[in-house]
Amino acid sequence: MAQIALQNVSKLYGDATALQNVDLTFTNLVTTAVVGPSGSGKSTMLQLINGLVRPDQGQVFAFGKPIDYQHLPELRLQIGYAVQGIGLFPHLTVEANITLLARLARWDAERIKARTEELMTLVNLPLSYALRYPHELSGGEQQRVGLCRAMTLNPEIFLLDEPFGALDPITRNEIQREFLHLQGSEARTIILVTHDLREALKLAQRLVVLDRGCVVQHGTGAEILENPANGFIRSFFQSQLDP
């Protein structure tokens, strides 16, 4: 059964339509990239899945069930979430940022320590960083901490909203490599919002192309590249991929 699906979902902000009659089923255990020009509804789609945004119409499914809006925190604990700007808590150390959810879930100290070291090693962060504050880290290091934090409780679903957007090209390349490595080590259902088509093609098996709140096409990268559904997609791909 599909873990994540949108059924005839519409969302308005005032008069502006963010999403219109979207029917979409995400494939389990692969990375799906949501691409499209800015304002096409990418972030809205992502935030529908963890309940940060509620649909005006239609239904959102997570873990195969319609979202229960009375119990959002429980749902969100099973979904890793990372955003552009990272959003590390400045008053907490690296370790405290990573282990916040584990501490709230009352894990014992040993388990928390083991998990922290495991995650930091996984993303190539020196363990000596554990007691530093976020502002003492570079942008790339902060982004790694952000990924660790999203992975702490080992969620089955990941929502990533432009997570590599603010990084310089070299650091971005490095982290993208680590991302692929992570995904290779254990397959998860990942939804990645990005405005960068190259990044989407590099990191994701499947693509969803949005334009003005509608799904224009979805499928594997190769499918869409070979058979663009319409002129919009053709020109969108051209403008992004031609140097």
């Binding site: 935030q47 969100r76 604990l77 959003g87 934090r149």
Partner: peptide, 10 residues
């Protein structure tokens, strides 16, 4: 962003 993340992470 911090508010969104704290709510979004559960």
């Amino acid at each position: 962003v911090l508010k969104k993340v704290s709510v979004g992470m559960g």
